[in-house]
Design a binder for these strands. Structure first.
Length: 812
RNA sequence: GGGGCAGUGGCGGAAUGGCAGACGCAACGGACUUAAAAUCCGUCGGUAGUAGUACCGUGUGGGUUCGACUCCCACCUGCCCUACCA
């Protein structure tokens, strides 16, 4: 009887006692760093965690059997808001809540039978971990990669904290964590200079990452080429604008500033002041959702001020309007109503002049008075002073040259990517290691004082405000520079900061001289295969790339990228085809499944039931297929067949062929992470083996070989039953240290082939021929076929196509 | 508005441009059983036919090719990302 409840705990204990999955530096072997995104300790391991981790584990095991020294670590992304919510709602300290969950989840992870090297576990909420998170912050701070600025930032009123731009999602601009629509607040916050790396982050060369992730990141960074041009106001202030159409500069008939633009106050005339201020007030109170909706009618107010168009010295009015956003470009635009739809609408509404300066070749001369929409196409420059007559394909470059020569602007590249806002007004995170001194300003906490530990004696108010702000003593300290009274920064870091470098902490979680042991780094990095959900495409995966590159420039890390190959798994939906959630009651619990079927069955089913990168709805009866498979394997290998015949040579040769053909395809599928066809290939081979067994193959040399190869192919998928059967069939412990079997190419060759015969591309017959048949013989045999002749209707063949080993196609 | 991904039986899915539907689930028929479960055997895209077999069939319409689920173009549907981005 196959009893997973007995064999699984037994082998898990044995493997742990023997340190079977310990990965240590070994210069003799090629290394392989397999990494799967670490879980947040929310309380229970979800079937989605299993779906993400099991195939990654199987792939890591396969690599190990191939002879690689494989590192496959696990840890916990342990800081974050749910812990604090538990504190507020249930009165449990976040630390207690988190570490209790970690204990439970570690137990659940162990029930998977994965090859995690638990000695390398890292928990981001441990002071020994966040000490280095803080150290990284200080390196960034000292090298001008971390800075403070006041800006209108996104704030989640439910989570009571600011968010990075990436963490605001969807049309309604909601919080990534809780779904509440965010609001804008003007606050002083800490940022990392991710924009310094915008250009480099667009370079995916040498990386084996899914196209989709590259596209998502490329779109997110959104590089646009144009020019920056400086306009002067009448009293000499500069207003810089960014434009992608410098060739339309002569058509700029007004300027628009964002309502929050710092120059608004200066350019506004006393007469316009009341109108401007009331518009600013209105813009401030309007939600971003309304404000950024493109179909809203454009509104704005004249400031009374004027600017000079630097190419033609024309005096043009300065307006403010909320369709110009302070957060993109310079927060100011030159408006070219003839060639930009937004500016056109605005000009028509407020009766501002429209000047045509581009004439596309395929259109009739444009008359501004009759236009009902802007003409955004490129074309010959007209009414453009010295550049009039410049053809469309040269217009951009000539215009840029012209403004550069006159010193009023230059070519410029703009990105939508923003600097990463890392301040969080929360308790349960790594404190930002800064001391604010009234004399010295923001001063980094000295290295010897790290970590800045979170105080444990804290209280939560129902408001959700950070207890660090309210703590009676923690906040008060002295300035490391002048020794005077000073205050600690009370904001903590975005948890994405912790997860930007966890792959480095795994290398040496106990090392206390540096974030990682350089020897370990040199051996293991970079990560060879990284797996996780695609939802991190524009968050974690951008942050961690930025982090690596920034650290590289500081001499901390090496190489272009931290993760060479990336693969994304899909999502397991509930049986009702909806996202699993407690409120829907469609949650599948891995603990229940393991109790009912055993871990190997769950692993096999998760790898089999869907294309990994797509995911699929769960199917409770589908798992029966995996149950039957393992039961059949058990009996096929252990029970001798009753009244056995003796197998003939054909049976054994066919068996060997199928075994080695399967080995070929399974090896390829493991390499390419094609997990569903690994399992289906093994099922198919088992069916063949069962047939061979009843034909008397059991116990023969060919059978022994088949069995040995089968169990080794199965070992990465179902490690427990494979180990048990390996032992029971007389092999030495452990199957997981065995080499991956080698394909006997000669054995895979068919000695007979079935040629399909087509007439005009339609299947008309199948003929069986010796594998070494010549082209002439094959064609002759095909033409000889009765059915083929029937469909040729007596016509002579015009052409006969022969694909060796596959088909003959007769064209008549 | 811009960009991306996907569309194959009742379901999940398979198929280096070459036999569409491997493998599995469900369903149906049968064997074993007093019965059920388990197990085993068989059927399982549609239409016509007792059958051999024929015709149709991979979202729709075109194209390339001796040959298209696969490559190209257009469209439809669904999902995801993004968006007054200057």
């Amino acid at each position: 009887m196959y009893k997973p409840e007995e064999i699984e705990p037994k082998w898990q204990k044995q493997w742990a006692d023997d340190g079977l999955y310990h990965a240590d530096i070994n210069q003799e072997k090629p290394k392989f760093y397999a990494l799967t995104m670490l879980p947040y300790p929310s309380g229970d391991l979800h079937i989605g965690h299993w779906y993400a981790m099991t195939p990654s584990d199987a792939r890591a095991r396969f690599k190990r059997m191939q002879g690689y020294n494989v590192l496959f670590p696990m840890g916990f992304d342990a800081f974050g808001l749910p812990a604090e919510n538990a504190a507020i709602q249930r009165g449990i300290h976040p630390k207690q809540w988190t570490y209790r969950n970690i204990d439970n989840m570690r137990r659940q992870l162990k029930s998977m039978g994965a090859m995690f090297d638990w000695r390398r576990e890292a928990i981001s909420a441990d002071p020994s971990y966040y000490r280095w998170t803080q150290w990284f912050f200080i390196q960034f701070f000292k090298n001008n990669l971390a800075y403070q600025k006041q800006a209108p930032v996104d704030f989640c009123p439910n989570c009571n904290t600011t968010l990075a731009r990436e963490q605001v999602q969807g049309e309604d601009r909601h919080c990534e964590r809780c779904g509440t629509p965010v609001i804008k607040k003007n606050l002083t916050q800490w940022f990392f200079r991710t924009t310094n790396y915008a250009e480099e982050l667009l370079d995916f060369s040498g990386m084996d990452w899914p196209e989709q992730v590259q596209t998502l990141q490329t779109n997110w960074i959104n590089r646009s080429e144009g020019a920056s041009v400086v306009f002067k106001t009448e009293n000499g202030d500069s207003i810089e604008v960014f434009t992608t159409r410098p060739d339309t500069l002569w058509g700029a008939t007004f300027m628009v500033l964002a309502p929050e633009h710092p120059l608004v106050e200066k350019v506004t005339t006393p007469a316009q002041k009341p109108a401007v201020e009331s518009y600013q007030e209105q813009a401030k109170h309007m939600g971003d959702i309304q404000r950024e909706s493109a179909d809203r009618e454009k509104t704005g107010v004249f400031t009374g001020g004027y600017a000079i168009n630097p190419v033609n010295d024309k005096k043009i009015p300065i307006w403010i309007a909320d369709y110009v956003l302070m957060s993109y470009g310079t927060g100011a635009i030159m408006a070219v109503p003839a060639h930009d739809q937004r500016d056109f609408e605005f000009a028509r509404k407020y009766d501002l002049p429209i000047e045509v300066v581009i004439q596309p070749a395929d259109q009739n001369p444009i008359n501004p008075a009759e236009m009902d929409a802007a003409v955004p196409a490129s074309g010959e420059m007209v009414n453009s002073g010295p550049l009039t007559g410049t053809p469309g394909d040269q217009a951009f470059d000539r215009a840029v040259e012209y403004i550069a020569e006159r010193g009023v602007g230059d070519k410029s590249i703009n990105y939508r990517l923003r600097d990463w806002l890392i301040s969080r007004q929360r308790y349960w995170g790594a404190p930002i290691p800064i001391i604010h001194c009234p004399k010295c300003g923001a001063v980094a906490v000295p290295n010897e004082d790290l970590p800045v530990e979170l105080p444990e004696d804290v209280e939560w108010l129902p408001t959700g405000e950070s207890p660090l702000k309210l703590h009676p003593t923690w906040r008060m300290t002295t300035c490391p520079q002048c020794g005077g009274e000073a205050e600690r920064e009370t904001d903590t870091m975005d948890t994405f900061m912790c997860s930007s470098w966890y792959h480095l902490r795994y290398l040496s979680p106990d090392y206390d001289q540096y974030p990682f042991d350089p020897k370990e780094y040199d051996y293991w990095m970079p990560v060879d295969t990284y797996t996780g959900g695609i939802e991190h495409a524009t968050m974690h995966l951008i942050y961690t790339r930025f982090f690596h590159k920034a650290c590289r420039d500081l001499g901390i890390t090496k190489g272009k990228e931290p993760m060479l190959q990336l693969r994304n798994q899909g999502m397991v939906l509930g049986e009702d085809n909806e996202k699993m959630s407690k409120s829907r009651g469609n949650v599948i619990s891995p603990d229940d499944l393991v109790a009912e079927y055993g871990a190997d069955t769950v692993r096999a089913y998760l790898m089999f039931f869907a294309r990994w990168e797509l995911g699929a709805p769960w199917n409770s009866s589908g798992i029966e297929g995996s149950v039957r498979w393992l039961r059949k394997v058990w009996y096929a290998f252990l029970e001798p067949v009753k009244n056995a015949k003796s197998a003939n040579k054909d049976v054994l040769r066919d068996l060997r062929r199928k075994v080695h053909q399967t080995l070929q395809s399974v090896t390829r599928d493991f390499e390419n992470l094609g997990f569903n066809t690994i399992v289906s290939g093994l099922m198919e081979l088992l069916n063949e083996m069962t047939t061979a067994k009843s034909a008397g193959a059991f116990g023969t040399d060919a059978w022994q070989e088949a069995q040995s190869i089968y169990l080794r192919m199965m070992a990465p998928v179902c490690p427990h039953i494979a180990e048990e059967l390996w032992q029971k069939t007389g092999h030495d412990y452990s199957i997981h240290t065995q080499p991956w079997p080698e394909v006997d190419v000669a054995a895979t060759k068919e000695d007979e082939i079935t040629l399909i015969v087509q007439v005009n591309g339609k299947l008309r017959d199948r003929i069986t021929l010796p594998a070494n048949v010549s082209e002439e013989q094959a064609k002759a045999a095909a033409l000889d076929s009765e059915n083929v002749q029937h469909f040729m209707e007596g016509k002579p063949p015009k052409k006969v196509i022969y694909v060796p080993g596959r088909l003959v196609n007769i064209v008549v």
